[in-house]
């Protein structure tokens, strides 16, 4: 089998298995899986910036929240329907990433991390400050009219799962195509050696900004979908915690691998779900996972697997 066939085979198989899961699993897990798929889209976006382009951001919660409020606010204040609201959320994520990128990408490394962290913090505080518009700390429930997409009621199990699945499948295939495209190669080149890439004729600022905007579009789409599928928009989703989560998923699953973000989200979600049955020390699990990963497995599960055995894995 050629590498190309293997690559498509594996990814389509994962999608088929997920599609089948809704008929095989009990409803509790189907809802979980819908949540995981949306969070995985967020993490895929994070992976485009961090895993492939080398941009370690601590501010992705801002893009996720931009998508969520970009969808939720028009539904609340302007009584938009779900489809335009969803698109507004997607674009809001990309636009926010563009604005942040224009400034933050003048820095690199540790400065970039702190600048993105500060912008995200300012965004979170702004949501609190404008509480008459945003609902502040308490957030708001997404109106019923904003949760009916193309005639399907997203508050019910099957349409919700299918909507999450379609978004996830589109995100996954797009990501697969992107990282195997010429531009994907340039993103990796930027991560590996920026100065060399410049002397091959690439503008580092433009490449990184494009990658960050793509990343923001993913985060925006995920944020909008999360608000719409689960019916709630709130400032918690703009806290630093939601910048750390996608980083954790990506580090666990494998930075710079297409399936890594999903695998990381799946494992982390159930790790927390299962441990919370025994103890409520879920923060400890997150913390220990972060420390353990940077110490012992900085390449994550699929990154290690690729290094050891499956060199063709994108």
């Amino acid at each position: 089998m050629t590498d190309r066939a293997k690559v498509w085979g594996v990814h389509l198989l994962v999608l088929a298995a997920l599609f089948a899961a809704q008929f095989l699993l009990p409803s509790y897990h189907v809802t979980n899986l819908a949540r995981i798929m949306v969070l995985a889209v967020f993490a895929m976006g994070y992976n485009i910036a961090f895993g492939y382009t080398g941009l370690l951001s601590l501010g992705h919660a801002l893009f996720f929240a931009a998508g969520m409020y970009g969808m939720g606010l028009p539904v609340w204040h302007l009584e938009w329907l779900s489809l335009p609201a969803l698109i507004a959320g997607l674009l809001a994520g990309g636009a926010m990433a563009g604005v942040v990128g224009l400034l933050a990408l003048r820095t690199a490394g540790v400065s970039f991390m702190i600048v993105t962290l500060m912008f995200a913090q300012a965004g979170y505080l702004t949501l609190l400050y404008l509480n008459s518009w945003t609902g502040g700390d308490e957030g708001f429930v997404v109106a019923r009219s904003g949760r009916v997409l193309l005639g399907f009621d997203l508050a019910t199990d099957t349409p919700r799962f299918m909507a999450a699945f379609v978004l996830f499948a589109a995100g996954l295939l797009l990501c697969l195509w992107l990282v195997r495209s010429p531009f994907g190669r340039v993103m990796v080149a930027m991560r590996e050696n920026e100065e060399r890439s410049r002397m091959l004729g690439y503008d580092p600022f433009r490449v990184k900004l494009t990658a960050l905007i793509l990343s923001g579009l993913y985060a925006g789409a995920a944020g909008a979908a999360y608000g719409m599928l689960f019916g709630y928009v709130g400032a918690t989703f703009a806290t630093i915690q939601y910048s750390i989560l996608p980083m954790l998923y990506v580090l666990l699953g494998g930075a710079g691998t297409v399936l890594g973000p999903f695998l990381g989200a799946l494992l982390m979600f159930y790790l927390i779900d299962i441990t919370s049955g025994y103890t409520d020390a879920y923060l400890f699990v997150v913390g220990a996972a972060l420390v353990g990963l940077v110490l012992f497995a900085p390449k994550g599960i699929l990154g290690t697997l690729r290094e050891r055995a499956l060199r063709w894995l994108p």
Partner: peptide
């Protein structure tokens, strides 16, 4: 800028 010189054929 350097990357545009490369585009113009200076490697």
């Amino acid at each position: 800028p350097a990357h545009l010189r490369v585009r113009k054929g200076v490697a």
